[in-house]
Simulated assay, not measured.
Amino acid sequence: MSWSPVDFADTSVQEIALLPSASLIVRTGVSAQEIEGLLENVQLESTPYFANRFGSEYVFAHVPAGSFTIVAGDSTVAEVALAPNESADTLVPVPGKSVEYVFEDFDDGDSLNNLAKTYPNYGWYFNAVGKANFAIPDSAESFSSVLKEDKDHGKYLAVKFAIDTGFVLLGTHLGLDTGFFDLSNLTAIRLTVRGDCELNIALEHYREVGENTFKKSLWKAKAAENWNEIILHPGREVLEESSYQVEWKEISHEIGLFSIFMRSGTYLEVDKIVFEGIDFK
């Protein structure tokens, strides 16, 4: 991207065409307890575009399409390319401050997420509600039936389903079936997925408010037929009182479950789930 002055006395300049703008979120993965010392803003080099810090993120709401260098103070921190109408979301770790926890990557081949290695639980479960059912796995199959493997992604979870009305879900307790974890420092959730379905992804409180019903913070996303990364931000959840969908800050200190709900489509594959801003080691 280059910037040049316009000479309005030059009659050969007939018009200026502007492409649709793009937006960019720069994540740092720094928890709220560690944000002291982060710069208050970052800039797209050689442009007039700055982004002020919001928590541990920097948001460029409207910038032109093009290739840019992100600078923080005197340091180059990342290169980005933005297409017209694109909403980009990139992680720029801060040495010594950024943390993350790989909640699940399925490479171990068992049904326990990585927290459940220390705090064992039932493992991943699959439920169908209403006129919906899982084709893979069926009720007689073991967890290994939902695992596939390739050289680029290692092992990953792969489910198939049919939905008329109702929904299917896959979920897991974070640790012990009756326990909970404080995830209030969470800055983002990162999932690597592909599929043909719309997703409702939730972190749920550990205590029931009805039969198999929990208060939850829920985010909506859509899988694509090529592998892509979905980024979910605390504070941008979808609120709906009748479905017990609440603000993240209301339940973030006592999270018991991770759930993915599907109400459309026929398949979903999940390679990795990462919590940014948190490290349980």
Rank of each mutant, 00 (worst) to 15 (best):
G171T: 03
A188L: 04
V193S: 10
A158K: 13
A158E: 08
L174R: 09
I201N: 02
T178F: 11
A221P: 02
I163L: 07
S242K: 14
G179A: 12
N228P: 00
E198R: 13
L176N: 15
L218M: 13
W227N: 11
E204A: 14
T187N: 14
K220R: 12
R207F: 05
N212W: 09
H233T: 12
V238A: 10
V209P: 01
K216N: 08
I189C: 10
V209G: 02
W219N: 05
A188P: 04
L174D: 04
L174A: 09
T192I: 12
K220L: 08
A162N: 15
E241W: 02
A202E: 10
A223H: 07
K222D: 02
L157N: 08
E237N: 04
E241K: 14
L191K: 06
W227C: 07
E204Y: 01
R236F: 03
G210Q: 07
Y156K: 05
K160D: 11
L183C: 05
T187Q: 15
A202C: 05
F167H: 11
V238Q: 10
L170A: 05
W219P: 04
T187M: 09
E208T: 14
A223P: 04
S217V: 06
D182G: 08
L191D: 02
N200V: 04
E204R: 15
H173A: 13
H233E: 09
A162Y: 08
I201H: 00
A221C: 02
R236S: 03
F214E: 03
R194F: 10
I163V: 15
C197E: 06
H173F: 03
K160H: 11
T165W: 06
K216L: 04
R190K: 13
N185V: 00
N185E: 14
F214A: 03
H173I: 00
Y156P: 07
G171H: 08
N200T: 07
R236Q: 13
L191I: 09
N212R: 13
A224M: 09
K160R: 12
R207W: 01
G179R: 14
S242C: 01
K216W: 00
D182H: 08
V159M: 12
W219R: 06
G195D: 12
Y156V: 07
K222A: 14
T187P: 11
L199G: 04
R194K: 15
L186R: 12
V193C: 12
D164P: 01
L169P: 00
L199Y: 03
G171M: 08
N212C: 00
D196Y: 05
V159N: 09
L176W: 11
I230V: 10
V159Y: 10
G235S: 04
T165G: 09
H205I: 01
L170G: 05
E204T: 03
R194N: 11
V159I: 15
E240P: 01
G166C: 04
N185W: 00
A224N: 13
I231P: 00
